[in-house]
């Protein structure tokens, strides 16, 4: 198992380094001169050149990459071109919105999907199953931003139960803050829950057909107990895989959803930064998101080892 974990760890590290190279190279070809952007359009060519030198923009490509990458390691992302504050400060302000949002959405998605999956698998082929899977099929097809718009008008504008958007900040208290994340989380979570429920159901059905489950049932264990205790645990591998993929999807989904709800999160920051050609912010956030995705996938790999006895036994 150690070898397996080690291999996954090395792969993750290599992926991260490659990703950082890709991100840096991509940002290089983005049009727009940050020095000119910072100085405004009345600045002379000399002033721009001076600032380019100060910012190290004239150094060779490789040097700049190394400088940037070593900065990342020590969480020094540089200074934002537009706000002229350290990028890490901006990120810190935003991460407290995006991360809770993605986590609430993930929790919500799991909390809906697993029971639905179990419910459906237990009634395979019957009306309840057909209904649940029909709903899931529909859920998969709904674009989350459209769903978000419908939610806003139903719950925020029509019923006025929750804010239509914006984020009061955690300083305003936990409940107002969580409340303003509810609709976005639901909008993000439901389409994901639909996918997850389908996966959970089919994984469960497969497991339920295996011999040891039949044995367990033959021993007289109640069906529900078998389903929840034995089958679910063994159906976790595909479910975890999807959960890992969904985390990446949720992080990216926050870009659009945060814009629909104008939440001051990382996704909105990155879109703003792209528009303002604040490359250093874009680079940093993309790298952060990529690192998060890689880390979560690593976590999923590790958890395989925990839930899958076969993998655990392997040396």
């Amino acid at each position: 198992m150690t070898a397996y974990l080690l291999k996954r760890l090395i792969i993750a590290a290599v992926t991260l380094v490659l990703a950082s190279m890709v991100v840096f190279a991509v940002m290089e070809i983005l049009p727009g001169d940050p020095a000119r952007l910072m100085l405004g359009f009345n600045a002379s060519a000399d002033q721009v050149e001076l600032l380019r030198n100060q910012m190290g923009l004239n150094a060779p490509f490789v040097l700049r990459y190394l400088h940037w990458a070593s900065g990342l390691l020590s969480l020094d992302f540089g200074r934002s071109y537009t706000y002229s504050v350290p990028v890490i400060d901006l990120v810190r302000e935003r991460v407290v919105v995006s991360l809770p949002l993605a986590l609430i959405a993930l929790a919500l998605s799991t909390a809906i999907a697993i029971p639905v999956g179990v419910f459906s698998a237990g009634r395979q082929g019957r009306a309840g199953d057909a209904l649940a899977m029909g709903a899931a099929q529909l859920g998969v097809a709904v674009p989350n931003f459209w769903f978000a718009l419908m939610l806003i008008y139903l719950f925020a504008v029509w019923l006025r139960l929750v804010p239509a958007g914006g984020f009061p900040g955690w300083s305003a208290g936990a409940w107002p803050a969580v409340k303003s994340l509810l609709l976005p989380a639901v909008a993000l979570a439901l389409p994901q829950a639909a996918i997850l429920a389908r996966v959970a159901r089919s994984a469960l059905i497969e497991v339920l057909n295996e011999d040891y489950i039949r044995t367990a049932r033959a021993k007289g264990l109640p069906y529900r107990a078998v389903l929840w205790r034995h089958a679910l645990r063994n159906a976790m591998i595909p479910v975890l895989t999807i959960l890992g993929l969904q985390f990446a999807f949720l992080l990216a989904g926050t870009i659009i959803i945060e814009n629909v709800f104008y939440l001051p999160g990382l996704g909105r920051l990155v879109l703003q930064a792209i528009n303002q050609r604040d490359l250093i912010v874009v680079e940093s956030i993309v790298m952060l998101l990529v690192a998060a995705v890689i880390a979560v996938n690593l976590l999923v790999d590790f958890s395989y080892a925990v839930v899958d006895p076969r993998l655990r036994g392997r040396q």
């Binding site: 992080l251 990216a252 792209i274 990529v290």
Partner: peptide, 17 residues
Amino acid sequence: LVFAFPALLSAIMITAI
């Protein structure tokens, strides 16, 4: 490597470039 980039984020970056 490709899967490490949330697809939508990258698509936004590509179209931004």
